[in-house]
């Protein structure tokens, strides 16, 4: 345990950078044109430090996924910029997408692990492909690395030889995590990763994410509409409602003394309260 702590502390020291690891500054994303135009995200400011776990909560359609897609370079903002380790890497004005030299640092896993895995690829192949792309390893080595990543997510070699359809929802989600870890990223964005899996698979996945954060210093942005999950996993939280960040702060403080009526409604809706 002592060894783990010191390793975690070491990883937490960013290499001579001050300020946040990942930052979204004044991000606005507008969809549609003219009279149809609406802001899915409006002037949002979010940061995450190395090794930190932050939450984004809000109802469906509040803009969580759109904001996350912008942070990883999948969605161009209409205004504002994304900064990684202090440098601007993506903005409304950028001619191209986020450069490859930056993209590996932030990886994302999605709500429905089924649609994000190629059904015609065996599980190990899906991970080996990502390893080849990001680590530029030849086939045989990529396979070994893929199996290592899968094993560390609790997927056996036997399961790795299957196609995604023969795995359970929880197993598939752990495969997506293994795939996202291929470039050894600094930030992992998990977009409602537990909403399509059952409770015991959810507990396994949450434990894995927590370990990645504590032991490898991976920063995590955890998106959910369930404040119970966010309470357990994150230390800071942003609350979104119809495109706006309406409240932010330390998770515990926000949950104990919510300032915004909408946050209070979310808290009261946790089942079992």
């Amino acid at each position: 345990m002592a060894a783990l702590t010191s390793e975690a502390e070491e990883k937490l020291q960013p290499d001579a950078i001050t300020g946040p690891l990942l930052e979204g500054k004044d991000i606005t994303v507008t969809f549609g044109r003219g009279a149809e135009a609406f802001d899915a995200v409006r002037a949002a400011n979010v940061t995450v430090d190395g090794g930190e776990a932050v939450g984004i909560v809000g109802e469906s359609g509040s803009g969580k996924t759109t904001l996350a897609r912008t942070l990883v370079g999948l969605q161009r903002p209409s205004a504002g910029e994304v900064r990684l380790e202090g440098q601007k890497v993506f903005s409304a004005a950028a001619e191209q997408g986020m450069p490859r030299s930056e993209r590996w640092k932030t990886q994302m896993i999605f709500q429905d692990p089924y649609s994000s895995l190629n059904p015609r690829m065996r599980v190990w192949q899906a991970v080996a492909e990502a390893v080849q792309v990001w680590q530029e390893l030849p086939g045989a080595e990529a396979r070994v690395e893929a199996l290592r990543l899968l094993n560390s997510m609790g997927i056996s070699d036997d399961q790795a030889r299957q196609f995604p359809k023969s795995l359970s929802g929880g197993q598939r989600q752990r495969v997506s995590v293994a795939r996202a870890l291929a470039p050894n990223p600094k930030v992992l964005i998990a977009d409602e990763p537990t909403s399509s899996i059952d409770q015991s698979a959810q507990a396994q996945l949450l434990n894995l994410l927590r370990r990645l954060q504590a032991e490898r210093g991976l920063a995590i942005i955890f998106i959910s509409h369930d404040l119970g999950l966010v309470r357990y996993l994150t230390s800071r939280v942003y609350v979104m409602q119809t495109g706006d960040i309406v409240e932010t702060g330390k998770t515990q403080a926000v949950l104990e003394r919510p300032q915004h009526a909408y946050t209070r409604l979310l808290i009261d809706s946790i089942p079992g309260r």
Partner: peptide, 26 residues
Amino acid sequence: RALRVSRVDRAVPGQDLEAIPGDAAS
């Protein structure tokens, strides 16, 4: 019992959840 104890609302932040090991029999 495992379903009860693996729930997040009982969990202490920073500590592992009591997850059921392995996967369900198919």
